[in-house]
Write a protein that binds this DNA or RNA. Sequence first.
DNA 1: CGTCGTATTGAATGGGTTCAAGTAGCGTGG
DNA 2: CCACGCTACTTGAACCCATTCAATACGACG
Lengths: 246, 246
Amino acid sequence: MAPASDADLIPLIRKLESIAQLADAERQAILSLPANIRAVDARQDIVSEKDRPSHCCLVLSGWVCRYKLLDQGKRQILSYHVPGDLPDLQSLHLAVMDHSLATVTASRLAFIPHENMRDAILRFPNLGAALWRDTLIDSAIFREWMTGIGRRSAQARIAHQLCEMYMKLEAVGLAQQHRCELPITQSDIADGLGLTNVHVNRSLKVLRSRGLLTLRGRELVIHDWSGLTQAAEFDPTYLHLEPRAA
Amino acid sequence: MAPASDADLIPLIRKLESIAQLADAERQAILSLPANIRAVDARQDIVSEKDRPSHCCLVLSGWVCRYKLLDQGKRQILSYHVPGDLPDLQSLHLAVMDHSLATVTASRLAFIPHENMRDAILRFPNLGAALWRDTLIDSAIFREWMTGIGRRSAQARIAHQLCEMYMKLEAVGLAQQHRCELPITQSDIADGLGLTNVHVNRSLKVLRSRGLLTLRGRELVIHDWSGLTQAAEFDPTYLHLEPRAA
DNA sequence: CGTCGTATTGAATGGGTTCAAGTAGCGTGG
DNA sequence: CCACGCTACTTGAACCCATTCAATACGACG
């Protein structure tokens, strides 16, 4: 647990600028937010269901995910988050966690007190709008996942998820040329898509054999972007990636 | 299309007070929002995917739903909305609709210009917080639906949905004693849960035979609330129904 | 009383699961 | 440098929940 230096909060600025326009004063306000930095191992809970967090978590490096657990150990992963994301921003207005937040890989996290977030939002309504917009995009992604889980075939779900991950990473400069790091297991993919790891494995094999992608070690390579988006019925509108005066 | 009188916006106040605390000035600000009232038949689109709405829609009476359409006419219903709800509030910060909004029953709707919403939010940050909180609760409900569709059995999904609907209606005074109006078809339920209408029918039959509920005509009666919540693994935390100073 | 939307039931099919048994990859320590 | 052990990945075979297709019943309403 160490205090943050200015440079630590740069991923947050990059992220917000991928979805909204910020003024200098607003960028400055972000940089001067107080934060404690913590390094966390892979597969550790950060915040748990029923907790009442007093800080917002900002991902500086690594991947984290939100999830719910049901009876008999069934797990549903709700979202993945990468550097620049604020995966529990909702806790600013929803006191009790209705899900858990955990690291996927080893990560560096910054914790920003709620009060300082609230204060910055009051002083910079446009910054508040950008953050609100961020939670709304989150919401849009939930809707898309719901649609996939409810109505798409296993292959299309997987293809869709990979398209989304690539585009989100590209938007913050963490991917290019249809390649990116993908540090999640097939069981993680399964738990995000409402499938079993076995079936994810089989479906990935088909996608591979169709020449659409390769997924080895922790690297995803999309060989045929247009084919993959077609297999996925992927339309990126829901990511709302055009920065916009909020 | 008629201008609204003050009384028209009362459902919105009731709704917001079910999730947040409002000051007098804020209630007043809501009542003085300009709005156009429109009566719409059942099963009509209000806003469509790709639209760029300039108004927020407030439900005054009737039920509406959000949905997405996929290839081959597959439909996923994303949420249901009842009087007091602002089902496209997200359009305030997301210019393009990533889904459609339609009436389920004949409805009265109020349309409030975005600029007036924005203005009220700037003047009353606490009102803005309440609205933000509302969209965050929406988000929490999406997460819960996703979990259900991904990981619950058909029976549990249906039971869960009915518990949720009852609680949401009760919270705004539209239901009591474990009875409520439920003006949706079995096909609607199916499209919200990622099932077929046939299977919803069969599963409802089982829930009925287990003595948990009856669903006839447009009325839902829950005979065994505790049994139903158990069958559903229903935990209302995610509805965040305790009004809270935002 | 006929008609249209909704609900109900049956029978066959299938996508995805479950259970089980390997195999590959990789960090660690002897 | 290789053996060990762990985790993730891969594959096969049987099974099952939910789908699909099709036919019938109900019920509200003109």
